[in-house]
Design a protein around this nucleic acid. Structure first.
Lengths: 111, 111
DNA sequence: CCGAATCCAATATGATACTG
DNA sequence: CAGTATCATATTGGATTCGG
């Protein structure tokens, strides 16, 4: 078995890289709400309490720029637009799952 | 084996709770840099590239308010002050470890 | 050394209204 | 429905200085 020879400074840099991808209050919740498949803007918004269209719009653009979501325009009358998670975004699942676990066990509001 | 019956809305709330504890660019790196034991302000600052005293001061207060770190004043001439992690802060280890792993595998700068 | 105080810039978030 | 535009506030981050 190999041991982890990363220095603490390395680890801090890794974490900072991760944080840059999912920074802010909204990105992880948005990704979570999209797990099902195709998602329309309005549906995502309904799934995230209290997010405004302005913020959601900006966050979706960030996520797209980071290759975590894909935006697709479906022609038709009227055109519909859907957002889907990329395969890449699924690599974040272990991180997100640990965050869910922690929040569940330690939330202040009680169970 | 029990299944997880949390709804997506629940999970989103859990994650939001977690995010509130570790929000921002600095809290997780600060916690990581403190793993060794007692830490003085100046040492923590040295471990986190580019953090200023103002930010570190504020973040340490937040972390203290959230019971993740303890501030101790050691009498003497001159007095010295140390920060240590609480037992509670160690419950975040799985989250932090996953963030390290992800950052290590996906960082843009290459290995 | 350990911060607090001050000043300021940059981002993030929010409320509301509006367009195609 | 899927956003954009505008305005306002809040939070964060940074530079510098200063006191115990």
């Amino acid at each position: 078995m190999k041991q982890d020879i990363s220095t603490m400074a390395d680890k801090i840099r890794y974490v900072q890289d991760t944080l840059q991808m999912i920074n802010g209050k909204w990105k992880v919740p948005i990704l979570m709400s999209m797990y099902g498949g195709k998602n329309r803007f309005r549906d995502i918004q309904r799934n995230i309490p209290a997010i405004t269209t302005r913020v959601l719009s900006k966050e979706l653009k960030d996520l797209e720029a980071n290759k975590l979501v894909t935006r697709t325009v479906h022609d038709g009358k009227p055109v519909s637009i859907s957002y889907t998670l990329t395969a890449y975004s699924h690599t974040l699942t272990p991180v997100v799952d640990e965050m869910i676990k922690w929040g569940k066990q330690h939330r202040k509001g009680g169970l």
